Computed example of a mutant assay.
Amino acid sequence: MLPLTDYERQDWKTAAEGTVRFALIGLGWWTTDLAMPAIEAAEHCETTVLVSSSSEKAGRIADNHDVPNAITYDEYHEGAASDEYDAVYVCTPNAFHLDYAETAAEFGKAVLCEKPMEATVQRAERLVDACEENDVPLMVAYRMHTDPAVRRARELIRDGFIGEPVSVYGNNSQPILEMIPDPNQWRLNPDLTGYGSSVMDLGIYSINTTRFLLDADPVAVHARMTSSHEAFSDVPDERSSAMFRFEDDVHMTTTSSQNAQDDTHLKITGTDGQIELTPAFHGTCTLHLSRGELNVTVEHDGIDAQREMREEFEYFANRVLSGEEIYADGDHGLTDMRILAAMYESAERDELVEL
């Protein structure tokens, strides 16, 4: 059995030399408060270009963070500062990811795209095609993949700590209207977010992290969604739940809501033991391990969202510089998009949908 607390936290690391210069596209709070400090702290990474709809905003943030280039979206598409960056980090509303990734691919730049990859399966397929046709690296920014607690849980599952996986329960919820008190925000606009809100933004965490942990994909889903609050009138999933059947007959229940108390956890139960991540997706991810009379809690001090982002950028830069295979790549992200589409289809029809 693998040791429970002593392990290599960056087991993905390979020899790499050089620096990946990033253009950051979309300067919302996630980029400015988390991504920029993460890049500054990461190995082999540097922010050299900021891209925003507002030249004033881009310039002000660039001055505050000593970034040499600040351009608008139009200037970016026209090729401004294209010699000043090697890769883009796309953190705009979902429905704009394709446009910025296509331009990056045309200029031969590597693409790190926030999840979910796009607003619809069709647009996500075009994004993947653009990167493949121009032979540029593409990674979907699932930061949980480089979280030490998640990676350790994956190793333990592979090593048989819980026996054969049997069931999974995941939840991700937050009070979005308290966090951003604007009912017209983009996450509640289906033209910008895609099929819905809670599942696209939050539910994806439980689903994708389970895929990563089990190295398996769902084969069927039955989902239910409701919206009653007036701010959610244009999206179907103020509250969402789903039952998945994964390969090897593993069953998963997942819930998500943009209008509930902040809560994130993921629990994997097997024939011999159990692994629980709580909090799982926001805050410091902590492992709770149980098997028979054994009960162990493994804490990871300082591993919060910003540190997860640092690990994510370090991983991406390492792969770009070394030429090693990237995970999660475009095909991995497309699988999630098809899972999301099936969930919304299932909820609309109130029927089981095969994947």
Score class of each variant (00 low, 15 high):
residue 252 M to N: 01
residue 256 S to Q: 14
residue 209 T to D: 03
residue 209 T to Y: 00
residue 161 F to E: 03
residue 106 E to Y: 06
residue 17 E to I: 10
residue 108 G to L: 05
residue 102 E to S: 10
residue 135 D to I: 02
residue 69 N to K: 12
residue 308 E to H: 12
residue 155 E to A: 13
residue 311 E to L: 14
residue 50 L to V: 04
residue 96 F to V: 07
residue 182 D to S: 02
residue 261 Q to E: 15
residue 91 C to I: 13
residue 153 A to N: 05
residue 102 E to V: 15
residue 201 D to P: 00
residue 161 F to P: 01
residue 105 A to L: 10
residue 269 T to N: 04
residue 320 V to F: 05
residue 163 G to M: 00
residue 70 A to E: 06
residue 161 F to H: 02
residue 145 H to N: 11
residue 241 S to H: 14
residue 155 E to Y: 03
residue 133 E to T: 09
residue 292 G to K: 09
residue 97 H to F: 04
residue 117 M to Q: 12
residue 273 G to H: 07
residue 210 T to Q: 00
residue 33 D to L: 15
residue 104 A to H: 06
residue 247 E to G: 09
residue 243 M to V: 15
residue 203 G to S: 11
residue 267 K to D: 14
residue 141 A to C: 13
residue 184 N to H: 10
residue 38 A to I: 13
residue 82 S to C: 07
residue 122 Q to T: 12
residue 303 I to R: 00
residue 342 A to I: 07
residue 121 V to L: 07
residue 276 E to M: 11
residue 51 V to T: 08
residue 18 G to A: 10
residue 144 M to I: 12
residue 205 Y to W: 09
residue 280 A to R: 01
residue 107 F to M: 12
residue 4 L to I: 10
residue 79 G to S: 03
residue 327 Y to Q: 11
residue 222 H to Y: 05
residue 268 I to N: 04
residue 222 H to G: 07
residue 258 Q to I: 10
residue 59 G to F: 05
residue 7 Y to N: 09
residue 279 P to K: 01
residue 85 Y to C: 05
residue 67 V to M: 00
residue 268 I to C: 01
residue 102 E to K: 09
residue 247 E to Y: 03
residue 143 R to D: 10
residue 166 V to W: 08
residue 222 H to N: 14
residue 144 M to F: 13
residue 72 T to E: 06
residue 93 P to N: 00
residue 96 F to H: 12
residue 130 A to S: 12
residue 31 T to P: 04
residue 152 R to T: 03
residue 12 W to G: 00
residue 10 Q to C: 11
residue 110 A to F: 02
residue 41 A to V: 08
residue 153 A to Q: 00
residue 139 M to E: 11
residue 70 A to P: 10
residue 198 S to N: 06
residue 25 I to H: 04
residue 60 R to S: 14
residue 236 P to T: 08
residue 317 A to W: 10
residue 115 K to N: 07
residue 49 V to P: 02
residue 122 Q to P: 06
residue 81 A to T: 06
residue 29 W to N: 15
residue 108 G to Y: 00
residue 321 L to H: 02
residue 176 I to N: 05
residue 346 S to Q: 04
residue 86 D to S: 08
residue 244 F to P: 09
residue 191 D to L: 12
residue 282 H to F: 14
residue 10 Q to A: 06
residue 25 I to V: 14
residue 19 T to N: 04
residue 48 T to M: 05
residue 79 G to C: 01
residue 248 D to W: 03
residue 148 P to S: 01
residue 315 Y to S: 09
residue 221 V to Q: 10
residue 336 D to C: 13
residue 111 V to F: 02
residue 7 Y to I: 06
residue 58 A to P: 01
residue 324 E to P: 04
residue 271 T to E: 01
residue 259 N to Y: 15
residue 180 I to V: 07
residue 263 D to L: 13
residue 149 A to S: 06
residue 233 S to C: 08
residue 218 P to C: 11
residue 240 S to W: 14
residue 52 S to E: 06
residue 314 E to D: 05
residue 50 L to F: 02
residue 189 N to G: 03
